[in-house]
């Protein structure tokens, strides 16, 4: 079996475990932590999938996803703080 595909499978199990924290998380910051972690795992998966198919487009999507999810995290954090935008 292709090593990239194996690790991709492990990472999807990891994402499911992180999703438990997102659903359970007692406070809102807990959920955001879960989301932030999930984002990084998804970026890693995209890179692995790009390597598996030898298509660069998935890695490009991963770069854009990394930057956009960072901005999303900052906005949610700002919203939790209750500050002005």
């Amino acid at each position: 079996m292709n090593p990239f595909l194996t690790v991709l499978f492990i990472l999807s199990v990891v994402s499911a475990l992180i999703a438990i924290r997102i659903f359970k998380g007692p406070t809102a910051p807990d959920r955001v932590v879960g989301l932030d972690t999930l984002n990084t795992v998804v970026i890693a998966s995209m890179i692995l999938f790009g390597a598996y198919t030898k298509e660069v487009i998935y890695i490009d999507v991963g770069i854009v996803y990394a930057l956009l999810s960072f901005i999303a995290t900052l906005f949610i954090a700002k919203y939790l703080e209750g500050g002005e935008f």
Binding site: T27, A28, P29, V32, V33, D36, T40, I43, I47, G50, A51, V56, I59, D60, G62, I63, A66, L67, S69, F70, T73, L74, I76, A77, K78, L80, E81, G82
Partner: peptide
């Protein structure tokens, strides 16, 4: 492109963590 993605992750991850920690403390956790 993989290298660029790695740099993006390295730059954005700790900053995001810092933002969440600060927001959590200010929202009273």
């Amino acid at each position: 492109h993989t290298f660029i993605a790695l740099v993006c992750v390295l730059l954005t991850n700790p900053t995001g963590a810092h933002a969440i920690a600060r927001a959590a403390h200010r929202s009273g956790v």
